[in-house]
Nucleic acid binder design. Structure first.
Lengths: 185, 185
DNA sequence: CAGTATTACTAGATTGTCTAGTTATCAGCT
DNA sequence: AGCTGATAACTAGACAATCTAGTAATACTG
């Protein structure tokens, strides 16, 4: 950062005490992220489940609606957990009555997981009002504003996705040389 | 949803095959969220830590920079974990050389947690390039566009934060009455 | 029809979290 | 000053969710 005094930090945008708009945007993005993860925690607690369980339920309901039901295998890969964990996750959700295991119509090894009506109600009633509020806010944007916001969010997703970085060790080494004093070690 | 045919879903915005802008915006928001959580996972794995550990490090570095160091207590409340978990978290981070426990200047019961130079380097080198990309994208917005995006993100955060809902049981009950057939049970 | 791949599950170990209780220190009251 | 209750960090023991490795049943392929 300190090597780029003309670009990102180190000066004031002073007259009216405001920070540069780009910073405000990123700050707002972070605020949203924080609010969102707090909401996730509330949801998690309100339904008495772990985070993966809630996420799994979301995927299942989505797939149900789209008419393309999921197998345990699909779920495992979407959630990024192992097949073993998926089994126990399904045990949990099944015991709590949120999902049911159905035989796959053609493959007798496989299963199809469906969310129960109760789970659908629970999720809808927990998240529905929030979705409504978000939709209302989104609809208040003009077409041009919506395009701006959409483009920005896509740019952010792209910025976050790029992953062609050197190995950790090298990067840390570079940094150590660049900043030889910090007073912490 | 199906009870509001004029507002949210159920018609086409047809001529050029596009969905309504509000939907596109929310979809972009979800895409960003997905990309971000994938990034978090990569970070987590690249540094060989749990999610809470990475988050704790972020808070610590932020606090360090702001000149307001954190106590284990502060950290526990920011992370939403217990004091006991905080102790073991600090044991982990301390053993791996990312943080150090320092005596509090005035309160001899308390500690001050500082991130080591190495942790600073590691986080900076892992997330620095990404921040740069995000900043670059944000700076490409005009002042008005930035204002639009900022306002939208604040509205979203607000939409997600509102939490004055009835108890879970009642909501589920309402829903069950409203949608008596779904074929899952 | 035989051999390999795939699906879901089981067993045992590891990890991160929690609650409850301990010790040292601080701040207020008499 | 000398108690007394509150607070900070830590310790012990238990629990929940995950992982790896391996098993049984079923599907595909030559």
């Amino acid at each position: 950062m300190s090597a780029h005094p003309t670009t990102s930090s180190g000066y004031w945008y002073a007259a009216d005490g405001e920070r540069p708009p780009a910073l405000q945007v990123l700050e707002a993005l972070r605020a949203y992220r924080t609010a969102e993860s707090a909401m996730r925690l509330r949801t998690r607690e309100s339904m008495g489940m772990g985070e993966k369980d809630v996420l799994a339920l979301r995927y299942l309901l989505e797939a149900d609606r789209a008419g393309t039901p999921l197998s345990p295998r699909d779920l495992a890969s979407k959630l990024g957990i192992s097949s073993a964990s998926t089994t126990t996750l399904l045990d949990r959700l099944s015991r709590s009555g949120h999902v049911a295991r159905r035989p796959h119509p053609t493959d007798r090894r496989a299963l199809v997981i469906v969310a129960t009506e109760e789970a659908d109600c629970e999720v809808r009633s927990t998240l529905g009002a929030m979705h409504e509020r978000m939709m209302r806010a989104a609809r208040e944007l003009s077409a041009e504003e919506a395009a701006t916001v959409t483009a920005f969010l896509h740019a952010m997703a792209e910025a976050v996705e790029a992953a062609d970085e050197p190995q950790l060790e090298e990067r840390v080494e570079d940094c150590r040389q660049a900043a030889p004093d910090h007073g912490a070690a």
